[in-house]
Nucleic acid binder design. Sequence first.
DNA 1: GTAGGTGCAAACCTTTTGCAGCATG
DNA 2: CATGCTGCAAAAGGTTTGCACCTAC
Lengths: 149, 149
Amino acid sequence: MKLDQEQGLVQAHLQKHGFRWTNQRSLIVRTALSTHEHFTAEQLLDLCRAQDPKVSRATVYRTLSVLEEAGFVEGLDTGDGSRRFEHVLNHEHHDHMVCLHCGAIFEFRDEELERRQEAAARRIGFRIERHSLRIYGSCRACHKTQREA
Amino acid sequence: MKLDQEQGLVQAHLQKHGFRWTNQRSLIVRTALSTHEHFTAEQLLDLCRAQDPKVSRATVYRTLSVLEEAGFVEGLDTGDGSRRFEHVLNHEHHDHMVCLHCGAIFEFRDEELERRQEAAARRIGFRIERHSLRIYGSCRACHKTQREA
DNA sequence: GTAGGTGCAAACCTTTTGCAGCATG
DNA sequence: CATGCTGCAAAAGGTTTGCACCTAC
């Protein structure tokens, strides 16, 4: 799926739900969609400001929260104080391993994990809206380095 | 295991690792150990201040981070801005479901989930230090209420 | 025309830190 | 008696909000 198409999808969804499609939102959405990294709000702001220096921090936060609510973007707590985001358009759900030494984030997916979570929720009558599995530790590169040091 | 015993364990560990055992730490540890809820730093501070009004916020934070490092306490991000803690003495590891409507936290445990996480990490040479699985959604009581409303 | 969105700056909230004095080992 | 700990208050860092102005629909 191309960027324009993806952006069109977001625009259509927002407009259908009574949100306006402003230049700022267009810029922020386009920027978020073309970033295949896990970005912080501040990083997204910087990227947007490279295009248009007068985008405000508040607008980036407000737009992120609209996008998150609409399900186009997911936030993940990395435990370092600030949240990171990733867009989930054209991305299947996955979980994360966070290296505590170099900050690298690895994605993985396991169907059985997903199924067992659903089963556990069903057992207590809990309805899942989303979930977040993060594994913390050290990546191969980092413990290799430690061993050499 | 009784509270005194548990506290003794913490004291022994900290002293062995060069930390001092002060009145404040004793109070904070005892309070944290006797709280079987998921508490925030602020709540723990309040509980401690009920015993001794001059305990400082900084000391609570500093002690929590010592306890976390030592593995007596685990922090979990609830996504609401502040971390929650729970002591893990005499508690086996478990994961959490967080109700987004009433804030209730449900604990569950699934051996197979643990095993598959380890397997996924092993595949990419990642060494796990800890992990956090949180499932967000609505608990049975909350969606029952919604349906009635 | 009128909701809703934006920019700015200030407010907020949680957590961390600098520092002078204090208490533990 | 040295080092680590505490309390205080201020700072830091991320996020939210009040308000006057602006703009998409």
